[in-house]
Design a protein around this nucleic acid. Structure first.
Length: 270
DNA sequence: CAATGATCCTGTCCGC
DNA sequence: TGCGGACAGGATCATT
């Protein structure tokens, strides 16, 4: 479900309610949702929250105790901040309980999401290799050109690959390629300099707009106040019948995922 | 190596 | 109304 703008929105919200607060306990209601690092002490709580950040689609919560909590929401996970009810809610897989009966519900219909608690020094082993952050200063045309060089996979597949660029998912890759006017089937290594410049610019534009609108809520995504984002109102191709110019949108499969694109506006062919 | 497919789950939607 | 199949913001692992 959530891609970079949604995770970024969630982290912003979490900072307001978690930073400096004390976590009293974690509760797990679905086996496997919470993963404990083998180096974690028997009673890691209470522990004060030092800092929160996003890396790709991962949420990382740094605790004062040299431990960290890593959260990945996968497809349907959401975090909802509330005051403590006693019974688990529907689809609530885990819960982070704070000091003054405040609670963060981890709600996840499809149960793919995970909460990991580990030693900060072990963080790396719980995170996959993640590529460049779109908002880092290295994310520019020359650098991207070097990354894409020689790649025969389609540009859509490459943009989705978290080990190459961290944070893009199916919605935003479709939207970026539409705005850049690039056919998603185009081999990544064959793009011109101008096309790569366009991808960089449109990636930053789309992600920034989406963040400023609180993300995209197609079905499950909500921020920590359980409110929807509004970027779905500005999608141009994802799950659309027609592009803004009235052309028929085509839907194909790439790496097992649906790609939506306009064959007229995104003309450069493989 | 890179590229595909199955898999982890539950819910929704569409066609028959 | 009911049922089967396809599909869903993701990522991993096995296979080819």
């Amino acid at each position: 479900m959530p891609e970079l703008p949604e995770v970024e929105t969630i982290v912003k919200g979490l900072k307001k309610v978690l930073k400096g607060k004390v976590i009293n306990s974690l509760e797990c209601y679905y086996p496997g949702t919470i993963i404990y690092d083998t180096d974690i002490e028997a009673t890691p709580f209470p522990a004060k929250v030092l800092e929160l950040c996003r890396r790709g689609k991962y949420i990382i919560i740094t605790l004062e105790t040299d431990n960290a909590i890593i959260i990945h929401l996968r497809m349907t996970g959401k975090l909802v901040f509330d005051v403590l009810p006693s019974e688990p809610l529907q689809y609530e897989r885990a819960r982070i309980i704070l000091h003054n009966s405040e609670v963060l519900h981890f709600i996840d219909i499809r149960t793919f999401g995970k909460i990991i608690i580990c030693k900060q020094q072990n963080e790396e082993q719980y995170l996959p290799i993640l590529g460049i952050e779109p908002f880092s200063k290295n994310f520019n045309a020359n650098h991207l050109k070097a990354i894409l060089k020689g790649k025969e996979a389609s540009i859509k597949t490459v943009l989705l690959n978290q080990s190459i660029i961290a944070g893009l998912g199916n919605i935003y890759t479709c939207e970026i390629l539409y705005r850049a006017g690039i056919n998603p089937l185009m081999p990544a290594g064959k793009l011109s300099h101008k096309e790569i410049v366009e991808i960089v610019q449109q990636t930053l534009a789309v992600l920034s707009e989406a963040i400023s609108l609180g993300g995209t809520s197609i079905s499950d995504y909500r921020n920590i106040d359980d409110k929807t984002g509004s970027f779905q109102d500005f999608l141009k191709v994802y799950q659309k019948q027609f592009c803004p110019l009235g052309h028929k949108i085509e839907r194909i499969k790439q790496s097992g995922r649906s790609t939506f694109f306009c064959p007229i506006c995104q003309k450069n062919k493989s």
